[in-house]
Design a protein around this nucleic acid. Structure first.
Lengths: 144, 144
DNA sequence: CGTGCAATGAGAATAGTTGTCATTTCCTTG
DNA sequence: CAAGGAAATGACAACTATTCTCATTGCACG
């Protein structure tokens, strides 16, 4: 399916800024991007899109289910393409590197914990903050 | 142990603003408070403390291990007294009501997921977003 | 290809939080 | 108990992330 159709299916008019943002998420090396990241990368590649538009488009994409919004520790939102398969995140506190994982046992226990208390679950977020210990991880702070 | 000693033990000079903030957390009906909440409640009870001081004190308390900082969905930080016993949170999306739970199975599986990938865990956060379904939950949004 | 409504861009506005700096408070010592 | 110096405070400016406003532009549809 083309990006144009993708947007149509999501109930969104197919406009230039939206195509650029979607394309960026599909081809960027980084899987998790903040609004600022998106804005800068588009600027760099010569595709001028206003920052306000980036924010609007990201929110629309989230509502349409194309993107997932995360709030890592920084208090600043990052987005990733919605692959359809839910997963949780391990974030390196030194370099910001993110790895994903999925544990059906954890999912099941969460559901149960909520159900036991009478809650109807809409969503959940699990972030593990850690050191990635990879050789290429610079032990500098303040990158994010 | 008195609040003064509490602060001393934490390596913090015992000042009026810090005592007021600590006291508020110990006696407030709400367990989870934002900086703004703390500021307003102190104003209301006639204890004038500057907003900047509230922020500073909260951060110091967090570093001293007296408080725990959470980032719920809103992107705005809330704090709770550190009871020493770790737990996770279920947050009602309708009324902001928070319930706590602890599941050793979830904890263990998280540790394993990280260890399997070579990470050294520092911390983690698990929030379940749900409807609390309590009779007293007003189904209005926009409270938070 | 024009027309209308939705989308965009620029910049102002807002929310939450941190930084600056002159003034005040707390603890120690005399 | 008073004085002094370091640390803490308060008022406000500054900053970051995000949303709002509104005049202009661009898409889809006939």
């Amino acid at each position: 399916m083309s990006d144009r159709e993708h947007l149509k299916n999501a109930g969104l008019k197919s406009t230039l800024p939206r195509l650029k943002v979607l394309n960026l998420f599909e081809h960027s090396k980084e899987r998790h991007l903040s609004a600022e990241d998106v804005y800068r990368q588009l600027l760099t590649s010569g595709d001028d899109v206003g920052l306000a538009t980036v924010y609007r488009v990201l929110t629309q994409f989230e509502q349409a289910g194309l993107l997932i919004r995360h709030h890592f520790e920084s208090g600043k939102a990052v987005f990733e393409l919605n692959s359809g398969s839910h997963h949780d995140h391990i974030v390196c506190m030194q370099c910001g590197h993110v790895e994903e994982f999925f544990d059906p046992g954890i999912e099941a226990r969460q559901k149960k914990a909520a159900a036991d208390r009478g809650f109807t679950v809409h969503d959940h977020s699990l972030y593990i903050y850690a050191d990635c210990n990879r050789p290429q991880c610079p032990n500098r702070d303040g990158k994010n």
